[in-house]
Design a protein around this nucleic acid. Structure first.
Length: 273
DNA sequence: CGGGGTTCCTGGCCGC
DNA sequence: TGCGGCCAGGAACCCC
């Protein structure tokens, strides 16, 4: 579902809709994954940030001259979306809702319930292990070809698995991993890659992600921005979803198989180990 | 602790 | 039209 470009598109639209608003109360579907929604009650939304695929709403509440801060973390899972509405719709799949002081309601909708809501003290991500151990943002200038190479070298699992783990680099999911590996001619089951190929991979990741952000994300089925629109990046994919079709570089037939429990598409000709 | 497999959910699509 | 089987953009969790 939503990977970094989709979450970033959502963040960008959501922030002006809710920044400065006060959350009067929160309510949720009765599941452990969403129950913390109500803990955001009474706080103002300072801003809306993103880390990897996680939306992070910075909350503040000044009571009796003491400023209290929290973070409302929304993870969209596979089918999550957010919207801001005046009237709550009849919808079975609303998993959390927050009444705002301007009469609007922030909604979290998630058909499959793979998403998650948490309200934590700033930076305290113990309850979200992946966020707690997350790697650098792809566009962080501190992430260099060398540091990326070293980080990739620290584990010997398949490169596809490493990129999906969020520990080496944040925000990649199945679509953009396959796209980035195709662009940089790296086989998804490669285990060690050299400095030069690591650098090419990082360059490809950045290009793939920035194009996807410009296109407003990739919509296959569920992904929507808060304004309800779909993304356009599905028309920009070279590899993901094209198994059985001709490689756009060499015309070989793209293959597909399961790697690390995830469906993987690659070109057997250009993506050598 | 790192790594691999399992599990959480629902709906859409395909083939019979 | 109905139903079983399979598939899906993610990550927490459990066990070795």
């Amino acid at each position: 579902m939503p990977e970094l470009p989709e979450v970033e598109s959502i963040r960008c639209q959501l922030e002006p809709l809710i920044a400065g608003k006060r959350i009067l109360n929160g309510d949720s579907f009765p599941s452990k994954k969403f129950l913390q929604a109500k803990l955001a009650s009474g706080f103002y939304v300072k801003n809306v940030n993103r880390r990897g695929k996680y939306l992070i709403l910075n909350l503040e509440n000044e009571s009796s001259r003491k400023i209290k801060s929290k973070e409302l973390i929304i993870h969209l899972g596979m089918t999550g979306s957010v919207s801001v509405v005046r009237e709550k719709p009849e919808d079975l799949y609303i998993r959390a809702q927050w009444q705002l002081n301007d009469g609007q309601i922030l909604l979290f909708r998630d058909i499959r319930r793979f998403g998650r809501i948490a309200v934590v003290n700033p930076g305290d991500y113990k309850s979200l292990p992946t966020l707690n151990n997350i790697g650098p943002e792809p566009f962080d200038p501190k992430l260099t070809a060398i540091s990326f190479y070293k980080s990739l070298s620290s584990s010997k699992s398949h490169i596809k698995t490493k990129l999906l783990s969020q520990r080496i680099i944040a925000g990649l999911g199945n679509i953009y991993v396959d796209e980035s590996l195709w662009r940089s001619h790296i086989n998804p089951v490669a285990r060690r890659i050299g400095k030069e190929r690591s650098e090419n991979l990082l360059i490809s990741i950045r290009k793939v992600l920035s194009e996807a952000i410009e296109n407003g994300g990739t919509t296959f089925r569920d992904y929507r921005t808060p304004d309800g629109l779909t993304g356009k990046n599905q028309h920009n994919l070279d590899c993901y979803g094209r198994a059985g079709k001709a490689c756009k570089k060499c015309s070989s037939i793209l293959k597909n198989r399961i790697i690390g429990q995830r469906s993987t598409t690659w070109c057997p000709q250009c993506q050598i180990s």
